[in-house]
């Protein structure tokens, strides 16, 4: 969340690294903790993590690029993660996607519109009996049709 994201702080980063270094298979939980703190995994952290876990930087980059959750820069504005998977498609998800893309003026590929709103695709949120579903800035939304969809659109285009 952009509002709570903290600027880069090497001391804080070292604290997080130190508190995870003892885990078995520490890399993922550690990078996740870094991302919770800074809303992304800043490049500066890579050599620090590499040193602490005795890994190469390439290994860490390999992990960062493999997992879609890891962001390399903090979002500048609200993030809408719309479910594009089958059960939501069956409830009109493709139309919701088209509607959001038109309203926001950006594609669902993580790109950011002129107001700083990002639209991302997610494959299932476990809300498949009450789709179309989305997470809007961390908050769950279901049954995105009719008034509920219009209210969401009002909120994000305000």
């Amino acid at each position: 969340m952009p509002s709570s994201a903290k600027p880069w702080d090497a001391i804080r980063a070292q604290d997080i690294i130190a508190s995870h270094a003892g885990y078995q298979g520490a890399l993922l939980p550690l990078l996740q903790a870094i991302q919770i703190e800074f809303a992304c995994v800043p490049e500066q952290v890579v050599p620090l993590v590499a040193k602490a876990l005795n890994l190469s930087r390439a290994e860490i980059h390999g992990v960062l690029t493999f997992y879609p959750d890891f962001k390399r820069s903090a979002p500048v504005g609200p993030v809408i993660r719309l479910c594009v998977a089958e059960a939501c498609q069956a409830r009109g998800g493709r139309q919701v996607q088209a509607r959001l893309e038109a309203v926001l003026g950006c594609k669902i590929d993580g790109s950011v519109n002129s107001m700083g709103v990002a639209l991302e695709a997610v494959y299932c949120l476990g809300l498949c009996a009450s789709g179309p579903a989305a997470i809007v800035d961390g908050k769950l939304a279901a049954r995105l049709e009719g008034v509920r969809l219009e209210r969401l659109i009002e909120r994000i285009s305000a």
Binding site: G25, L28, G62, F66, Y67, Y123
Partner: peptide
């Protein structure tokens, strides 16, 4: 961390060990 294939059991183990 957002990868569907990590539901496959051996990919899941790789992920738990801290790899791709």
């Amino acid at each position: 961390a957002g990868a569907y294939v990590c539901g496959e059991e051996t990919a899941l183990l790789e992920s738990l060990e801290g790899r791709r």
